[in-house]
C-alpha cells in the first residue's frame, strides 16, 4: 500500500495514472496536507489494521495547514508503533540545497526526490519496498 501526501492535484493525478498503468501497487491513499494524514495515522494507532498501514509514503514539503516538515516532526514520534517498516520519501519541487540537506539528514527520510519524478525510478522504489 502506498500513501501520497501532496496538495498539488495535477501532480497527484499524474502519479495515480502512473501507478495504475504500471500496476505498481494495489492500494493508494491520498492526503492534501500533513494534518489530514497525521489524523489518519493517529486513528490507525487506536485500531491497528495491517492492511491500512502504508509501506511507502511520498511526502511533499510545501502544503497548507500542516507542511511536510511539521508532518515529519509528528510522524517521527509515532512511526515505530505500527509494527511495520514504513519507507518515507520526500518528493518536492524545491531544489534548495537547505531543503534537500535538511530532509536527507532526518532518520525518518529514506531519500529526497526532486519533482518531476522519473517514472522508471518510481517503479524501482516500489519494487524495493513492496
Amino acid at each position: 500500500m502506498a500513501c501520497i501526501i501532496d496538495d498539488d492535484n495535477i501532480y497527484v493525478n499524474l502519479i495515480k495514472k502512473i501507478i495504475k498503468t504500471k500496476a505498481l501497487c494495489d492500494n493508494l491513499v491520498i492526503f492534501n496536507d500533513g494534518k489530514q494524514s497525521i489524523d489518519y495515522f493517529e486513528a490507525l494507532l487506536e485500531n491497528l489494521e495491517h492492511d491500512r498501514i502504508p509501506d511507502i509514503i511520498f511526502l511533499d514539503l510545501n502544503m497548507p495547514v500542516m507542511d511536510g516538515w511539521q508532518f515529519l516532526e509528528h510522524f517521527t514520534k509515532i512511526k515505530n508503533k505500527f509494527g511495520k517498516v514504513i519507507t518515507l520519501y520526500v518528493v518536492s519541487s524545491s531544489i534548495y540545497p537547505e531543503d534537500i540537506n535538511r530532509a536527507k539528514s532526518l532518520e525518518t527520510v529514506e531519500d529526497y526526490l526532486v519533482k518531476p519524478v522519473i517514472i522508471s525510478d518510481l517503479a524501482k522504489l516500489f519494487g524495493k519496498t513492496i
Binding site: 498539488d8 495535477i10 501532480y11 510545501n62 524545491s94 526532486v114 519533482k115 518531476p116 519524478v117
Partner: peptide, 10 residues
C-alpha cells in the same frame, strides 16, 4: 517550478 515539473512529467 511545481508547474514546470508537472509539465515535464506529462
Amino acid at each position: 517550478r511545481s508547474h514546470t515539473s508537472n509539465l515535464e512529467l506529462i
